[in-house]
């Protein structure tokens, strides 16, 4: 984390907006934690090690292309903050966000 500009970009990428106090604290936290981790891991020789993506060695888990019951629309929408005409409603989107 080089500067606050980078923090801002990261905040955008995470779809968050931070108060000045939070931003200051997170800037320091990310800086300290990443420095600590980078130092820690720099001592580890991983040249001959493959990444381990998952503990599970399971492969090829599939479903057949068979229909199952959907949720009833009332149930699907029951937790939505705002609905209009059977849809989830958000403020009008002009373009990409």
């Amino acid at each position: 984390m080089k500067n606050h500009e980078e923090l801002k970009q990261l905040t955008n990428m995470a779809a968050l907006s931070l108060s000045d106090i939070e931003a200051e604290k997170l800037f320091n936290d990310i800086r300290n934690i990443s420095q600590y981790l980078a130092e820690k891991l720099s001592g580890l020789d991983t040249r001959n090690t493959e990444p381990m993506v998952h503990v599970s060695d399971i492969t090829n888990v599939f479903r057949d292309d068979n229909e199952s019951d959907p949720l009833k629309r009332e149930e699907l929408l029951s937790n939505a903050p705002e609905t209009v005409n059977g849809c989830f409603a958000v403020p009008k989107i002009i373009e990409e966000i």
Partner: peptide, 13 residues
């Protein structure tokens, strides 16, 4: 995204 007639919302299907 469906744009509703009132122009106030975007609706998600």
């Amino acid at each position: 995204l469906i744009h509703d007639e009132s122009g106030k919302y975007s609706l998600v299907d």
